[in-house]
Design a protein around this nucleic acid. Structure first.
Lengths: 349, 349
DNA sequence: CTGAGGACAGTAAACGTTTACAAATCACGA
DNA sequence: TCGTGATTTGTAAACGTTTACTGTCCTCAG
């Protein structure tokens, strides 16, 4: 009985507004706004009355009204392949923290590993007032690029660094990192090096690493030995790749795995097959995740400065929005962490 | 020369507005709004003119204006300890995806492991129009609880499930999961079981697991053997805890590690010390992360349905906002994944 | 006492939408 | 021809802010 005020639809908005504060303090809304935003411009006595009133009712200025009036939302959005991956989430986390420290807020959206149809997914972010867009990896959607250019929406490609890029890019260079790693193996004396990669479809990271490997092999006049895995579907698939390599290329003395999880899977299979790591086969991973050091033998990897990259990307975007400073690219150095999974090659048979 | 239009400050807003579309289509803004939102209510010919105009200029309705008028932002925010942790990010990822599928968007904020001062960090989220707040873990900030109650801001505690909770809670029960695990060890014949925990300060997960362990020991009339580690600062600290336990309680036959990474660290140290796993010592982890299966021996853990929890939390919040259905609690079952790191206890010496 | 000028507060417009209401148009039967 | 009612479109107000402009009051020098 007695319908509950028929609100239902228009219900939301339990929060006090600036009008409520003004009424309580007995001043105009302009005075409230000034008392809260530029305290010096209002007489002490009034200011205190306003602040007291605001506090007493937990007043928070509504960012929606504010954004509409100021034409600034202070929102910067990030799109990344997936959150449940320590490599990406470490960077995303640094971005979010940096945004918050600077008065911004960020939407986070996972886009999967295919960057060709980003525009449709980015739409909602843009609608909601995104002032800057940070996207992990190479941006392959021409519609998005066109839109951002046409409407002056700042766009930043983060995580991977690209020598040639349509948009500014902040991150590490997968190509150089792999060269660095393989050259280190070379210096140790390895000449028969194979690679196990994850799927490179729409994945700029794997693509760059494979390209680096092919280039090095070409320089040495060797046929590159590369096997692919599908670890997303089958965690044990690295073992199968190892068996293929040992069967077809038993002369291999070092194995470059393009993801740590591949290296782990290979290591387990190697133990099962009685292949000693590193005595018979040296092994490397990529992305120095925590577990790499805990494996037995501990795993040689490439360390990526995720935190630095995230902070740099967020800061660059903020600086661009606030000072108009142009968004520049920036390459971060990676470092090979040499651990026990790598040794000099075994003596030739 | 010739100052660039003196925009600078008021520059933002390159996006076309509904007025631009209206002018281009030669209709009023009301018609544009209707043509786009309830197409049936406008004559075919006009509707097409409007849509064409909107498309030609990439018009997207501004969510800020829309939110102000509708008093709905469709934003649901999540606060979690840290993103760079596969346990949390898997749940967060599911939340974000579910939100997006349902027309919502979500802010993500990391709050660290201390949930006592959440209110200040939540403020910005609330200001920005958050309609519902999902927080990982127990919510210990009374100010936040009071505020949410007073202003009817829906609050949901996710990830962990609590039997007694001030707010609705969706997740798995750490207490039960640990009991489940320890009882399984018991059934196998283990009677001397020790626990290695991470820091339990402000961490409801570790607290519940420790409580379960103490309760079981009490029921058996045993003194609980618990060691603490600080793996956040020193990845190898698990090894030190193992040495302490083997020294002070050499009769231990099974070791319950409250985080997988602790178990990994312990396993490495065990191998170094010549302690055979599982022959001499059975070992368990928690949270069935991918690497658990890859370790050697593969690690027995508790599997947590992260994806399901995330989706359920997001869906519950959305349903509450849209239908007014009360936010209910929900407990998800965990499952012990028995792997090679656990065996029957060794024969007593 | 008067006027100028400074300090402060209030009024109203604007930001981009949606929507209640009013107005216009049209079809059609009397 | 006109009136009626249905259909379609336009007008204007409102959402919560900020801020340019105007107005008021006070102080103080002339």
């Amino acid at each position: 009985m007695a319908k509950p005020k028929s609100q239902a639809i228009q219900a939301r908005r339990i929060r006090p507004t600036i009008h409520d504060v003004a009424k309580a303090a007995g001043v105009s809304i302009a005075t409230v706004s000034r008392a809260l935003n530029s305290p010096d411009s209002v007489r002490k006595e009034l200011r205190e009355r306003v602040v007291a009133a605001a506090d007493s009712m937990d007043y928070m200025a509504d960012s929606v009204g504010k954004a509409l009036r100021r034409q600034r939302t202070q929102i910067i959005s990030t799109m990344l392949p997936r959150l449940a991956d320590p490599l990406f989430s470490a960077v995303a986390s640094a971005i979010q923290e940096t945004l918050e420290e600077n008065g911004y807020l960020g939407f986070v959206q996972t886009s999967g590993f295919d960057n060709t149809n980003l525009f449709d997914r980015a739409k909602r972010l843009i609608e909601h007032g995104t002032e800057g867009l940070i996207i992990f990896g190479r941006i392959d959607d021409q519609r998005l690029l066109d839109y951002c250019r046409a409407h002056q929406l700042p766009l930043l490609s983060a995580y991977s660094y690209f020598e040639k890029s349509e948009v500014p890019t902040i991150g590490f260079d997968n190509y150089l990192a792999t060269r660095q790693l393989v050259e280190m193996l070379h210096t140790l004396g390895h000449s028969r090096i194979a690679m196990i990669s994850g799927s490179d479809k729409g994945n700029d990271r794997q693509q760059s690493r494979i390209r680096a490997f092919r280039d090095i092999n070409a320089e040495l006049g060797q046929e590159p030995v590369i096997e692919f895995t599908h670890m997303d579907f089958d965690m044990a698939d690295g073992g199968a790749a190892l068996r293929r390599i040992m069967e077809n290329h038993p002369e291999t003395t070092a194995l470059v795995c393009n993801r740590c999880v591949i290296a782990f899977s290979v290591m387990v299979e190697a133990r099962r097959l009685g292949i000693a790591v590193p005595e018979h086969l040296s092994l490397t991973g990529f992305d120095d995740i925590d577990y790499a050091a805990l494996f037995d033998p501990s795993l040689t990897t490439v360390a990526v400065p995720s935190e630095k990259i995230g902070r740099a990307a967020a800061k660059a975007m903020i600086a661009h929005l606030e000072t108009g400073a142009p968004l520049g690219s920036r390459r971060f150095e990676t470092e090979v962490i040499l651990r026990r999974s790598v040794a000099r090659p075994r003596a030739p048979a």
